[in-house]
């Protein structure tokens, strides 16, 4: 599936009502040639896992400005691993303190794009690390 563009799900987890940053990133990734699915606000971890399954994304961008990241992001990651989708590249954005960022990286978040991260940096990271040789026919099988 080399011809397929990178597919990205941008999800807002938790209760905060601010998605300007998420929308800006959505547009930037689209302009970089990716297919970007945006979930809208107030997603639960279960909803995000379900959307990632159905949309078969390569990359999941999680955003939270409400401090919910520490508990909610790991639940998303666990949910994806439980259905065998642990190979999805997970990046996080929003307001995430440095200590929490370190914890999230241990939990499986590949990168944390804090405030001030340039769009170019985020795009370059995703292009470099998005899984491109995902198993076509055994999604969720075994791994």
């Amino acid at each position: 599936m080399e011809n397929r563009p990178i597919r990205v799900l941008i999800a807002k987890v938790g209760l905060d009502g601010h998605d300007r940053g998420a929308k800006v990133l959505t547009r930037a990734l689209r302009d970089a040639g990716m297919e970007v699915i945006y979930t809208g606000l107030h997603q639960t971890p279960e909803m995000v896992v379900e959307a990632a399954i159905q949309e078969d994304v390569d990359v999941l961008g999680l955003s939270s400005l409400s401090g919910a990241h520490a508990t909610l992001f790991p639940r998303v990651i666990e949910g994806l691993r439980a259905v065998g989708l642990g190979d999805i590249l997970i990046v996080a954005g929003g307001v995430i303190p440095a200590d929490d960022a370190a914890e999230l990286k241990k939990a499986g978040v590949a990168a944390v794009f804090g405030p001030g991260t340039s769009l170019a940096t985020s795009i370059a990271f995703i292009k470099e690390h998005a899984p491109r040789n995902r198993r076509l026919s055994h999604p969720g099988g075994g791994s």
């Binding site: 563009p5 959505t26 689209r30 302009d31 970089a32 990716m34 945006y38 809208g40």
Partner: peptide, 10 residues
């Protein structure tokens, strides 16, 4: 760009 924003899920 070949890119797309797929917003129907919202």
């Amino acid at each position: 760009t070949g890119g797309a924003t797929l917003g129907d899920r919202i």
